[in-house]
Nucleic acid binder design. Structure first.
Length: 1049
RNA sequence: ACCCGGGUGGUGGAACUGGUAGACACGCAGGACUUAAAAUCCUGUUCGCAGUAAUGCGAGUGACGGUUCAAUUCCGUUCCCGGGUACCA
């Protein structure tokens, strides 16, 4: 008998499912579990519309193999799967097609699950989670509230309830105010101060703003300063945003790396991302009226403008800092990063440097264009130039600003500062290579020691001071620390390495500045002006952010008709006034965080939809009708039950004065199965009236004809699923309206609260999902402490390097916060990380010929094989020769005999990799491709074959280089597919996908099968004696499953 | 631009601490079985040159240079490809 993988795999899957072989149980409370635990986790996928491609399963297969191994070794293995189902693509798709993200997401997940199941993974689907499910994001919101209600204590280096801080302020005050002052502050003032300490806080930050689209764009969506869609100009705009104070955890995130087993490359990337550096922050005082001749006489590149500003003017324009909290005292933690203010008493420019030893080599200062001081210090003469420059910079993304270093840009402000040690005059410039977000947003430029400073000085003809003698050759900068300092005042003759400490000490002594540890990492932006994400459980009232109570969670995402941005570029939620406006939230007060609160039971009671029964008669009537059903009704009824929709449908249920065929009360959805008579005009009118009345009482009605139900059951079912999703969201919306919003048009002033209309970013849900798998059904808490103590850290975490910094840092931070709050017992979520390599797509190309001038008007498409194309490209093939070949396959392709004027173009076109075998095009399949667009195509072959060109690119639908695992599994079976993926090479390695070669693996499995299958006895040999009527295979749990061999002999 | 990977036959890859480069597999070629094909089995297969052949000689791990008795491996420079760079997930 042949190796019948279909039957074998089907049998296995069925048995696994029927016996719930992969169901994983948690230990019973108070009992010792007899098996040791092992937690194998995959990075869960974003369910994209393109479905699973062959890159996804690589890591999943590896972890699956490992899970099975561990299970056989006697461990209780947790190996779950779920979906990271919030995100931009679904929303983008919704904007384009009008389909609700909930619907498309649901559909995509179904596809993914079906695909995953075919590959035969041992997941316990009972533990599946979806980040977009309210029962899940309820807890995402809840954790956000913990972040909001706690602050980072610098003495204990951990998160503590903000109530403790309030207590401290009330009794002792702080470095900035006394307890009495605190008490005298208004509520708003106090809240503003507290906001500067919360782990989740709100502040103003810059976003990419596209006026034409009226929306905020991701960096990805901005190309060369214009929007990717439509090419509209994009500028920076300040908007209120939410942030996570991840910078407070920088040191602990660094230390934590020592305790986990990640690859060195991964740790290195995270360290670089955090970018801890030690140096000094110091102040260069401004010189109100410099005499440029002293330092700059006759230099080119400077505008000749004299600074007109006098001292009085200057100090006035610099102003005084009215808001104490804007100062950068450490007690107040990091200043809100994106709006870093670097001023100090209005005296000068605060710069950060890691090389204070080079202080005497400073030839100019450079401010970030966004720097607060820019507008204040610019001299009248430079104003126009600076303004032009700022306009230019506004249109450029951070990445562009860093990437194009060859293109040096900058502008002189006209102002000068003094070197704090020798008083040397230093011009102040602005340039895009200095980023506002890093350090103080201002640098001291040392051209002889820093390449970028050097290039800048050369470009603008700024004289360069050499402080490192022969180490500097005048041609390029030298960043050495081994030089002996010259021209460096009190540092002269010192080795730079040693001078660093000396310089810092001196700087501190003289009060010029202080030692400072700096991080490249910024606080994490946590709000998005988008729809498809977790809504913030926050209400704004009089400028104060008020958290919802835990009992009010989840705050469900309301239904929207349109996904466009709000009036001021807010998220789409801002358009739903009835959702956004909340009457009198004044009684709300923020409660202290306590464990009790965490355990408060969720608001459970299901909201009962509005319906009433007219008379008992109707019930009797309905009962009777239930017995007389049509074929279509019966089929649909069976299907609705079989589909496990997790909702309860009733048949022939009376609503108002009607009896509905099928009804789901929870979702307020009615499904009608109509016979042929519904086609009549009279009946139609009646049906419409009926629909209208049912709609009025809050039900959605969808109708199908009996014919549809019988002949296209699947699409009927999927329409029902879709309707369930939408009606559910709509119903929630209704409830929101009726329960929380009682006035139809509330006065939008005093006492009104406004919901936060931003939503959380994609990484919110994925920052803690590994905890939810442990206890996915818990309605009391995000994860029971006993359960998380048992499963503890993820033992092996498998996923791609693309998440090296983002996701992995965020989830590590969340774990640390939850640990600080004593909600979990470990502060590193992942013990070991394995990075699977990326599977790139391997694209294939065909080459289409067109002849201009003398060609046939409507020729059949013609394609030339790769090597001939290559010869043509390299000018090794004459026009005559090519034309001859063209004639040989199609003698009317070129019409005129006057070939002198012919012009030949050959275009490279992506072709679906699935119709190419290796590099050889399957011509028949190609003709059928794209609905027969190339049905009558002609081909110029080489050696009787059409050879395609190839290139390695990212796997993407538009490049036709995605390979769907389904096809491979159907053709060769899951075992072959899994084995082939593992045979591609080490999991950690990136490699382009190529399907050729899978045959070999399949052949191997067939050989293996033959080795154990006895042709004559028709049985599989087990490790024990051969049996005649059974074949055996060990189940993953160790027992031996037996199955009668029904194999054909 | 910066950070992190990677580059070895026609292909995927192997070579563990510097010690016979190309394991294993795909593909290809030849052969056996077969009326034939498929399947299966056997043999060969880095490239170039010479030889009927066994075999011999030379080159060879992106490129250039260095350290070493010896380099895919260590060092320097450089080119190319992939990932990340904070609103793609």
């Amino acid at each position: 008998m042949e190796y019948d993988f279909r039957k074998i795999e089907e049998d296995c899957r069925k048995k696994w499912k029927d016996d719930e072989v992969y169901k994983v149980s948690n230990p019973e409370p108070g009992k010792e579990f007899d098996k040791p635990k092992y937690y194998v986790l995959d990075m869960f996928p974003y369910p994209s519309g393109a479905g699973l491609h062959v890159g996804h399963p690589l890591g999943y297969i590896a972890s699956d193999i490992y899970s099975r191994y561990k299970r056989l070794k006697g461990f209780n293995v947790l190996h779950p799967m779920g979906f990271d189902s919030f995100g931009l693509p679904a929303e983008q798709y919704a904007i384009e097609t009008g389909q609700h993200p909930a619907t498309t997401t649901e559909k995509n997940i179904e596809t993914f699950k079906a695909q995953l199941d075919k590959i035969g993974f041992c997941y316990d689907w009972g533990r599946e989670i979806r980040t977009s499910d309210p029962s899940y994001y309820k807890w995402t919101q809840w954790i956000f509230l913990q972040l909001f209600k706690n602050y980072f204590c610098h003495t204990q280096k951990k998160a503590l309830p903000i109530s403790l801080l309030v207590e401290k302020y009330e009794t002792k005050g702080s470095a900035h105010f006394t307890a009495e002052e605190w008490k005298s502050f208004t509520k708003k003032e106090r809240e503003d101060i507290l906001m500067k300490r919360r782990l989740a806080f709100s502040a103003y930050g810059e976003v990419n703003w596209c006026e034409a689209l009226g929306t905020v764009l991701a960096n990805d969506e901005v190309v060369n300063g214009v929007s990717e869609r439509g090419g509209h100009p994009v500028v920076k705009k300040k908007m209120r945003q939410w942030y996570l104070r991840i910078t407070e955890y920088a040191d602990r995130l660094l230390e934590g790396l020592e305790t986990v087993s990640f690859s060195d490359a991964m740790k290195e990337m995270q360290r670089n991302w955090i970018g801890k550096s030690e140096g000094a922050e110091m102040i260069f005082s401004l010189i109100p009226s410099p005499s440029p001749s002293r330092h700059l006489s006759g230099e080119k590149g400077f505008t000749e403008t004299e600074t007109k500003m006098d001292a009085e003017n200057l100090s006035q324009s610099l102003g005084t800092q009215s808001d104490k909290e804007n100062s950068t005292d450490t007690d107040l933690g990091h200043p809100s990063r994106p709006i870093n203010v670097m001023m100090d008493e209005g005296q000068g420019v605060r710069v950060y440097t890691t090389r204070p030893d080079t202080i005497f080599g400073v030839d100019f200062l450079v401010l970030a264009p966004e720097h607060e001081l820019v507008s204040k210090i610019t001299t009248d003469g430079q104003k126009q130039e600076i303004e032009n420059y700022l306009t230019y910079v506004k249109s450029r993304s951070d990445r562009e600003r860093m990437a194009e270093v060859k293109q040096i840009t900058g502008c002189f402000t006209g102002a000068y500062a003094a070197n704090p040690f020798d008083g040397k005059l230093i011009p102040i410039w602005i340039a895009e290579y200095v980023l506002a977000g890093y350090g103080t947003g201002a640098i001291m430029a040392v051209p002889c020691g820093d390449q970028r400073d050097f290039a800048f000085a050369k470009h603008f003809n700024i004289p360069i001071t050499n402080i490192i003698g022969h180490h500097y050759n005048g041609q390029e900068a030298n960043a050495t620390k081994d030089a002996v300092l010259q021209n460096s005042g009190f540092l002269n003759g010192m080795l730079m390495k040693d001078a660093i400490a000396v310089a810092i000490n001196k700087i501190e002594e003289e009060g010029i500045g202080k030692r400072k540890v700096n991080y490249r990492m910024r606080d994490a932006g946590f709000s998005r002006q988008r729809y498809w994400g977790e809504p913030f459980p926050i209400i704004w009232s009089d400028g104060i952010a008020l958290p919802l109570d835990a009992e009010e969670l989840p705050l469900e995402l309301p239904f929207v008709e349109k996904y466009g941005p709000g009036p001021e570029g807010e998220g789409p939620l801002a358009n739903i006034k009835e959702w956004t406006l909340i009457p009198s939230p004044s009684p709300r007060v923020e409660k202290g965080v306590s464990k009790n609160e965490a355990e408060i039971e969720a608001k459970g009671a299901a909201l009962v939809p509005k319906y009433k029964v007219r008379s008992p008669m109707q019930y009797e009537l309905a009962k009777g009708m239930r017995k007389e059903y049509t074929e279509a009704e019966n089929l649909l009824w069976q299907q609705l039950r079989d589909q496990k929709l997790n909702v309860k449908f009733r048949r022939q249920h009376p609503i108002e004065c009607y009896i509905a065929d099928f009804i789901c009360l929870d979702h307020a959805l009615i499904v009608e199965a109509d016979g042929g008579y519904h086609e009549s005009e009279e009946q139609k009118k009646y049906d419409e009236e009926r629909n209208r009345i049912l709609n009025e009482v809050g039900f959605t009605v969808i109708r199908f004809t009996n014919y549809e139900i019988l002949n296209d059951t699947q699409s009927v079912l999927s329409k029902i699923k879709e309707a369930l999703q939408i009606s559910r969201i709509r119903r929630n919306n209704e409830n929101t309206k009726s329960s929380e919003f009682s006035h139809p048009s509330p006065p939008a002033d005093e006492g009104m609260g406004v919901r936060e209309t931003s939503t959380m970013p994609g990484y919110a849900g994925s920052s803690w999902y590994f905890l939810r798998y442990m206890d996915p059904k818990n309605t009391e808490t995000f994860c029971d402490r006993n359960v998380s103590d048992y499963w503890n850290q993820v033992d092996v975490y498998i996923g791609g390097t693309e998440h090296a910094v983002g996701h992995l840092l965020y989830s590590r931070m969340w774990a640390k916060v939850l640990y600080d709050l004593n909600l979990i017992g470990f502060d590193e979520p992942f013990k070991k990380l394995v990075n699977q390599g990326m599977i790139q797509g391997s694209s294939r190309f065909v080459y289409r010929i067109s002849v201009l001038n003398v060609g046939n008007d409507k020729p059949s498409p013609m394609f030339v094989s790769f090597n001939i194309y290559k010869e043509w490209l390299e000018n090794k093939l004459s026009m005559r020769n090519l034309l001859d070949r063209i004639f040989s396959v199609d003698d009317v392709f070129v019409t005129s005999m006057n070939l002198e004027s012919a012009e030949i173009m050959i275009n490279q076109i992506h072709v679906d990799v699935n119709i190419v075998d290796g590099v050889e095009l399957n011509i028949e399949a190609f003709k059928k491709w794209k609905n027969g667009e190339f049905l009558d195509a002609k081909f110029i072959l080489e050696d009787g074959k059409y050879i395609c060109g190839s290139e390695t690119e990212k796997m993407s639908k538009s490049k036709y280089n995605t390979v769907n695992p389904d096809d491979l599994v159907n053709k060769y079976g899951a075992d072959t597919f899994r084995m082939y993926e593992m045979f591609l090479g080490p999991v950690e390695q990136s490699k382009p996908w190529d399907t050729k070669g899978i045959e070999g693996v399949h052949r191997f499995l067939r050989k293996l099968w033959r080795l154990f299958y006895d042709e004559h006895k028709g049985a599989i040999w087990t490790t024990s004696a051969p049996r005649n009527d059974h074949y055996k295979f060990p189940s993953p749990l160790g027992e031996v499953a037996q199955r009668a061999d029904e194999g054909e002999r």
